[in-house]
Design a protein around this nucleic acid. Sequence first.
DNA 1: CGATTTTGACCTGCGC
DNA 2: GCGCAGGTCAAAATCG
Length: 158
Amino acid sequence: MDNYNLLLSSNHSSSSNNSYLLQASHADPSVLSESQEEEKKQESYDERPDKEKKKSTAKIANKIRKPRFAFQTRSKVDVLDDGYRWRKYGQKAVKNNNFPRSYYRCTHKDCSVKKQVQRLSMDEEIVVTTYEGVHTHPVVKCTDNFENILNQMQIYSS
DNA sequence: CGATTTTGACCTGCGC
DNA sequence: GCGCAGGTCAAAATCG
């Protein structure tokens, strides 16, 4: 129970009804690599006067692992509005993917929740959104439950 | 004019 | 030790 990943895939193409499959898997090598939980080095930022000087990676308090949730949806758009404000801080191309992966971070004072949006190369309609961390602040929108979010997915994908 | 995106550089872990 | 792959930073550009 070190890490728990929630894979939520909404496949509305096959069945007429909105059948959401919610399953909990330990580790999915295809989308999630939880083998090495690299702790973020944003804990203590050194001044870093020069580029040559490598920041002292204080890997203290490296025991707590942040939960990660992977939402795999079928949608045309990458960004799924979950009610939070996200600031994109990076974008990298994945090896086996022709589509880049976007890195977002919650724009809050003390909320450092990260999320990354990846699109499968085989099926460009599949978008994997991986959330990392938990929000410690109220949402700016009314997100009662996932049903609301999933509803938006339906709207977007249709 | 402030907040956010873009984009290249940089860092770090891992495998060879 | 070096190169690759993934993740992050930060300055410039862009948007509202």
